[in-house]
Design a protein around this nucleic acid. Sequence first.
DNA 1: TCCTTTGTACACCGGGCTGTGTACTTAACG
DNA 2: CGTTAAGTACACAGCCCGGTGTACAAAGGA
Lengths: 199, 199
Amino acid sequence: MGPQGRRRGRGARERILSASQRLFRTQGINRTGMDQLCAEAQVSKRTAYQHFAGKDDLVAEYLRRFDPEVMAGVFDRTDLTPRERLLAAFELPASGSDELTPLCPYIEAAVEIHDPRHPASQYARDYKLALAARLAAAAREGGATDPEQLGEQLALLLDGASARTRVLNAESFPTAAAIAAVLIDKALPATDRDRGSEG
Amino acid sequence: MGPQGRRRGRGARERILSASQRLFRTQGINRTGMDQLCAEAQVSKRTAYQHFAGKDDLVAEYLRRFDPEVMAGVFDRTDLTPRERLLAAFELPASGSDELTPLCPYIEAAVEIHDPRHPASQYARDYKLALAARLAAAAREGGATDPEQLGEQLALLLDGASARTRVLNAESFPTAAAIAAVLIDKALPATDRDRGSEG
DNA sequence: TCCTTTGTACACCGGGCTGTGTACTTAACG
DNA sequence: CGTTAAGTACACAGCCCGGTGTACAAAGGA
């Protein structure tokens, strides 16, 4: 119910969004009420609704905030060959060694929202396509025979690992990584395995 | 809210469960209220709560009912070689040609329920393990080098296709099938591709 | 200093949800 | 026929949720 003792002042919007990240990811979207979210953000409910038109709006903005941060760490690593970059995408994201990888927030949103026309569902779709495109770009750089196909395949593996980790309550990324290795070895020319095809 | 005109009589429990299948699959679990469900089942709300302790109970039972029906069609086909059976698991399930494959109900439940200790989550986990085991059994029958690994890999592909179909709002099973073909060809001995290793 | 912008406190509304109480009706079976 | 199990109709309790109205307090630039 907002900040009871100390005033928290000006950074309301940012606090709301970062509280969203914490709560939506750990509890899910539907199970997180606006009251709890405002309490976590130390923001009054009124303020929240002055910054966001509604919960839907907040959810959409929460998803939009993921785009930059998620994939940048992997794809911008110029020290790795394309092949290594593709494989690095399957290393456990932000691996707190005893915690499970949480379900991809876009899949979570798509399942919880369930309306394909909802802005959040649009963002989810856009993100997934963008990620596949990035994978395809790295695949092309590595000299893959059919980069788009490999990108889509690897993206599917990531989604599978994420969903399966949630259902089984056990880490599934290593399995996905093993499949990815097979696909990459098959699609990338053997001579370029340790070196990009860039000339 | 229940049967307004005609009385429907004795088959209440079955009608409730089959209405669950229709509504939970098309709308999701949380978005389907007991009122709507009872209306669809043409059953009074009171009757529903005489058959099930609560909605949680109904959801658990709804999931339990899937076990026999889903995989039986594929794995019992003795006319197919093990390799063909493994591949058949990736053919679009119940393909209404213009409709998307709905999200696997166990993934749906695991995401919507979100509590790993909930009976529904248990069923989901059990089902996923059982399916992987069935795939592994077929893989073993086909002479795979590491049947358990192949089973787990194929199961992950199915989950990935299911989740990604939902997020992208576009069919992803063909992609998964292509990956499956690669994995199967790699794991099954070439001489046994058209014939089981049974002797 | 004053005034605008931002945030606060808190009660409250309407609606949907799960679940129940009660009195009644019907179908099946002996 | 009579008895009993199954189902019905419907109102209603209680809860939580998203969202709002109102009156007030503080920060910060001019």
